[in-house]
């Protein structure tokens, strides 16, 4: 019984790290993604190309590798060692996810028919009125399923942070494995299932909320 409570309190401590990483990443990557979208859709070619190359690099290399780069590069290149491992993980996650989000946003924005913009224009709306009053909600409706996928993937990706020494839930469980206890490792799955069960319900509700119109 002692064993059990020790495992539970260790795993609870671990999942807190995952949750922190999850929520802060979401909070920062959602707006940063929009900035990257604006860059990749920019009419000014150099900005467009630079953004697209950046997105290619981030999406084209493993997140695990990016974690190492963020942890070691500042020390190696600028002689300013990265002392905060959580911050390193945070930066890598935000950049990585912002790039994926930006491509989803771009797809969503480009999928809205030109006629929607033109209808707003001939009615004398400004460009920002057209975007915020006409386009945005249609984009949100269209990208919700794809964003849901990314968000669910993010819950599980947070475990990757252990490669740079963050004591998230799986790292906590592995410590018990070394002492001959295997069940703590397997039971971490329950935590993820609960998290994603809740997320699935939230996402369903969000989709339902936008069910009243077709776009």
């Amino acid at each position: 019984m002692d064993n059990f409570s020790a495992v539970v309190s260790s795993l609870n401590g671990g999942i807190l790290i995952n949750l922190q990483l999850f929520f802060t990443t979401l909070l920062l990557a959602i707006p940063l993604g929009l900035v990257i979208t604006l860059g990749s859709m920019s009419k000014f070619r150099p900005i467009k190309w630079l953004t697209q190359i950046f997105v290619w690099i981030i999406r084209g290399t493993p997140l695990m590798l990016q974690l190492f780069v963020v942890l070691y590069a500042p020390g190696l290149i600028f002689d300013i060692p990265m002392s905060n491992r959580f911050l390193a993980a945070e930066i890598a996650f935000v950049i990585n996810y912002a790039c994926y989000f930006s491509e989803i946003y771009r797809g969503g924005i480009e999928s809205i028919p030109k006629g929607q913009y033109e209808a707003g224009e001939v009615l004398g709306m400004t460009r920002s009125q057209i975007f915020f009053k006409v386009i945005l909600l249609q984009v949100i409706k269209r990208i919700t399923p794809a964003m849901g996928n990314e968000v669910i993937t993010l819950t599980k990706d947070t475990s990757l942070a252990r490669v740079i020494g963050l004591t998230e839930i799986i790292m906590c469980a592995e410590r018990f494995t070394k002492k001959g206890l295997i069940w703590p490792l397997f039971s971490t799955g329950i935590y993820f299932l609960i998290m994603n069960g809740i997320l699935t319900i939230v996402l369903k509700r969000l989709e339902k909320k936008m069910d009243y119109f077709r776009a």
């Binding site: 028919p113 006629g115 929607q116 033109e118 209808a119 224009e121 001939v122 004398g124 709306m125 400004t126 006409v134 909600l137 249609q138 409706k141 009243y212 119109f213 077709r214 776009a215």
Partner: peptide
């Protein structure tokens, strides 16, 4: 341009109503 185009109204072939309204 916005002010000038208000002299005109346009009805499109494909309606282009705003679906969320």
């Amino acid at each position: 341009i916005r002010k000038n185009r208000l002299h005109f109204g346009l009805v499109f072939q494909s309606f282009n109503l705003f679906p969320q309204y």
